[in-house]
Design a protein around this nucleic acid. Sequence first.
DNA 1: AAATCTTTTTGACCTGCGTCAAGGCAGGCA
DNA 2: TGCCTGCCTTGACGCAGGTCAAAAAGATTT
Lengths: 261, 261
Amino acid sequence: MPTRKLEKVVSLKEIKVACQACSLNEICLPVGMGETDLDRLDSIIDRKRPLARNDHLFRIGDPFQCLYAVRSGSLKTYATSEDGQEQVMGFHLPGELVGLDAIADGRHPLAAKALETTSLCEIPFADLEALSRQLPSLQHQLLRVMSQEIRADEQNMVTLGQKSAEERLASFLISLSSRFRRRGFSENQFNLSMSRSDIGNYLGLALETVSRLFTRFQNEGLLRVDRKHIELLDRARLCMFSSAKCSSSEEPRILRPNASS
Amino acid sequence: MPTRKLEKVVSLKEIKVACQACSLNEICLPVGMGETDLDRLDSIIDRKRPLARNDHLFRIGDPFQCLYAVRSGSLKTYATSEDGQEQVMGFHLPGELVGLDAIADGRHPLAAKALETTSLCEIPFADLEALSRQLPSLQHQLLRVMSQEIRADEQNMVTLGQKSAEERLASFLISLSSRFRRRGFSENQFNLSMSRSDIGNYLGLALETVSRLFTRFQNEGLLRVDRKHIELLDRARLCMFSSAKCSSSEEPRILRPNASS
DNA sequence: AAATCTTTTTGACCTGCGTCAAGGCAGGCA
DNA sequence: TGCCTGCCTTGACGCAGGTCAAAAAGATTT
């Protein structure tokens, strides 16, 4: 059955993909924008060369100039307490915006670091603000994205506030899986770009606990782990373990022509 | 001057203070707006009669039409899991906006319930969005407020993710104290409008733990508790306990002419 | 003022997970 | 090829804080 959707001509060789051609435009900032509006958004966006693993995109206290959208790869954001220990606040996949928490006072309250080779779109905030005044759909989408961020943080509070270690890791894996799926990747098989220590830190657990849980989940036939590679064998049961209403596979998903290896 | 009941005198309770005259306009949505802009914002805002204790402002899943600013009193927002147990996500004091997490998909993901008699400003979101397109300062402030919310949630993640019970409660009290101060109330003495159970739930602790900590803090001379009333005796030391850089009393504060009684 | 209900306090017990420690494994580099 | 370094796994142990239980202190109703 043919999709009623227009076929987009995507040049895979092109390094700097315009928003119009970007496979992420259905889940990124451009959601809900028309062709001509997209053009104008595209014109304020800058695409620099990719970050290498462990490069910082920005550090705590850096002046805020731009929002960033992840194009490929992944980032973690984290705070550091005065005694130098870090708290991982989030992991960011393609199509997600980073830096929204800096709007408040023009300084980044968190640092952002590449977990692997990562390319980004740089969006000067002043331009974005001005443009969104002219493009209602952009304005609306920006507010929506921020609202979603608030929601996601609320979810995290539930996870940290009242879930057991087991439930936390299960939730985390299900959430990652869904996010990969949404982006057109496999939902049952993926690579973790972050270390056990990052995961533990993010979930409020010791890395040893994370490690133990991975082996336990594997023994119970829920998944298979090999180093960074995760294969979910029983997503449904993992969902039960996470004690969350795992929105099943009904969500919109990006069509990704050559991702069905 | 004796108060007499005259036909033309509006009862105090029904006075609808315009944004221009509202003592909260320095910390609420109007921040940074000029007189005439304020007028226009004011014109879209509706002020209904107050909520009684335990009244719901909205429930989970309710369609999203309006944002609300607390004018007086306080609210809690909370989620409920399928098994019916609730997770308190936040407490909202005068000058704070509620409902920002509903913009994402037009439904409230949390319920909001009055902790005491609470009056609110109702702000139709569609109008706000339209108006903010015309008033850059309003647009900017809306984004700032949302960004602040994200930041606050990030703070909560740190609290839940890596603080001990003691540190959590200390952080909570310091944070409340600062927020009261900002609003022109005493920073060293205030009433908790929420129950121990709400506090515990919010902080990811059992209510028994909260209770024990209150008595412990009192025994250590940090504060005095009497039922709902809290008096901070040694804010500095409490700050140490919270292991957070407690921004001291240097922040802007609302002038409140007759609050010194 | 008695009766009932809710909230808070306090104690006793127990367990989930953090901490410490030691050893395994892979990848980078000489 | 072997060493080094960073990550991961596994075991042993202890404690912070959860759970259960009961009583005290308010609050609300009759």
